[in-house]
């Protein structure tokens, strides 16, 4: 995997490419609770609405959006489970 941003590699990746909102947000919510606190989940989502909704979900849920980047040409959102 090639990433254009420098940062810690994620603990897990969920591929939501081709999915329309709210599906990427739902997938992110399901997978993050399955990870330990402190782990980073990368969500691959190319729906333009995800660029708005994933940061908004992190704010509403008190989780941390660590980075947004482009991975193999697709938007990627790295979320750290804070609690």
């Amino acid at each position: 995997m090639r990433t254009e941003s420098v940062g810690t590699p994620p603990d897990e990746v969920v591929d939501c490419l081709g999915q329309r909102c709210p599906l990427p947000v739902i997938a992110a919510a399901r997978r993050l609770v399955a990870l330990p606190v402190g782990a980073v989940l990368r969500v691959l989502a190319d729906d333009p609405a995800a660029a708005v909704d994933i940061p908004a979900w992190c704010r509403m849920r008190g989780q941390e959006l660590v980075a947004t980047s482009t991975v193999d040409g697709s938007p990627a959102y790295d979320i750290r489970r804070v609690h």
Partner: peptide
Amino acid sequence: TLRPSHVLEAMGVLSHG
């Protein structure tokens, strides 16, 4: 356009639902 509202986007608030 299948894009979220530019207003909700500018505000940084949830656009789905």
